[in-house]
Design a protein around this nucleic acid. Sequence first.
DNA 1: CCTTGAGAGCGAAACGTTTTGCTTAGGCTA
DNA 2: TAGCCTAAGCAAAACGTTTCGCTCTCAAGG
Lengths: 340, 340
Amino acid sequence: MVPATYKDIRRLTGLSLATISKHFNGGNVLYANRVLIDQAARDLGYQVNDFARGLRSRRSMTLGVVLAQLNSTFNTTIVAGMEERLREAGYGTIICDSRGSAAAETEALQFLIGKMVDGIVIVPVGDRVDGLEVAAERGVPVVAIDRPIANAAVDAVVIDNRAAIASAVELLCSAGHTDLALLAGPEVVFTMRERRIGFRETVKRRTGRLPRRALVGVDPISIEGGYAGMVRLMRLEAPPTAVVCANYEFTLGATIALNELAPDLPAPALVGFDNLELARVIRPRPTLVVQPVAQIAAKAAELILQRIAGQAGAEPRLEVLGTELVVGEAATYTLRRSRA
Amino acid sequence: MVPATYKDIRRLTGLSLATISKHFNGGNVLYANRVLIDQAARDLGYQVNDFARGLRSRRSMTLGVVLAQLNSTFNTTIVAGMEERLREAGYGTIICDSRGSAAAETEALQFLIGKMVDGIVIVPVGDRVDGLEVAAERGVPVVAIDRPIANAAVDAVVIDNRAAIASAVELLCSAGHTDLALLAGPEVVFTMRERRIGFRETVKRRTGRLPRRALVGVDPISIEGGYAGMVRLMRLEAPPTAVVCANYEFTLGATIALNELAPDLPAPALVGFDNLELARVIRPRPTLVVQPVAQIAAKAAELILQRIAGQAGAEPRLEVLGTELVVGEAATYTLRRSRA
DNA sequence: CCTTGAGAGCGAAACGTTTTGCTTAGGCTA
DNA sequence: TAGCCTAAGCAAAACGTTTCGCTCTCAAGG
């Protein structure tokens, strides 16, 4: 009923609390006594009380994760990868969802600090994050993923967004396309801003002029947004011959739109973003900019663990990872088809 | 640097620790003193230490959530809904991912118990869950969602799976279909087992005979599974005229397959499962069995809060919620089209 | 005038660990 | 043999709350 404590173990073994504690924390204890303690613990169904331990040691062996969107393959894949790595290091993980709301994000940070987490990994909602000062005061290290944080000096793991989009544009241009469109979200989101810049710059460099205004609209970051954007593009008087999608949602939405419209209209070439399971299923196999999710997870775990261990310098570190362009059939598909 | 404590507040206010504690827990304290304490707390940036509080009070004001799959709209939507309700009641939420692994599930339960959660909500991986005894011993209530737990007497919130599928079958039969197929996963998963039974029974009742063996295959619960299953069905010598998809993944996979194959083959009518955002985007608008996610979330929150408050009887309660059949265009679509 | 009870406050004892010194025994070196 | 070191163990003091009794005051009721 009532959980066992060190005192119960003391009763069964005759050892002192200090020795028992030492054993549970990997200190030097005689073999015979180790066995004794383990046996007693098993008999009692003993489990350490994290509250007492945390209160005294000021460590929780727990990390907090705050996600801008819980319901996103990209995020959850990274979290799963990180969790595994952190579990090996003895840390548990608490996941919070800020549901794209800055207020909820601040609240989540407070919750985590209250839970005395030893570190925080965050996919921020926006460029600025409120409530990080408390973490700084408490000495709780923070690592940002996917987007850096403007108003705090914290480590960050991001991809080279401009280069990522550039590689997509390069491919399309090399395949002969000259009229490229971009489906992307609003500039306030870091990744969208960067990808947009990468798109414009590369198009300019390769074709000699900036993309037409109608081809770089702003759509809501959602499947519907991608769908609507693609429909809009296809209804233009001069539709693009190729479309780059700036993230997963746009890719999916655009693909759906193409599937529906394809019978009636000549479909443009498509380059999508993120490693979606769908990619294995959609025909023609789409060309994709693939983020190194495993690497991102590993790097973030490494950064936060180093910070906790105090092995990192005062400077915030920025890790920029490269992306891969997995060429499918869709990039050149249409050119071939429209020629036929 | 080092966090403030009651002692600091005592220094600033001259009040005793007992009084300060009473105030922070809503007890009777003179207005003047309340103001004094609040002021001091603000000046000190005071935040209560959850470890000390939990150690003493044996309550954490935190609930644990264990998901069989973090990366699932269905699950995350429910979690988001529950979290909101629980936050209102003053509870924080810790989310764990068992990644479909029974071992990880047990580990997550231990982690949560160690964190002294006041209750656990779980979407179980399988019919049986290991590690629940500890929760029972500690008096930590558990509520299962989506699937009941066979080896423990806990509350559960599920939908009427047989009726859900039955409604889909009824609609298709009423539309004139006689050759129905089911895309579903293995029997070991509760929901799949139930939906399969519902399918067979209703087909039998409406058409007079059980569905052909080839039309009720077992596919992996994944988008690919749905895709492969649909392709297999369409390649049969006598393909079905209508297909029921037993969950979200199957629906999505099947839809993709249809989109690709449609130009070549007469497409069957399709009834899908779960309220996917995609539904708003796909044309023809699919008919869907929609789970009452908001209700499920609310009911689960209610059950766990009641248990914590000790207001529930000894009997485990089983809440069975109904589903809605949202009729789209696809159910009758093909019949019309194939007549044309 | 005495009793009763409620409101407000206090001191001190938990809660279950970790951690800090301090002992002791035994082995090694000089 | 003296001196020193290490391994192993112990008692007791934290850690920051909540909670259990007590006390005191003041107002109402008889």
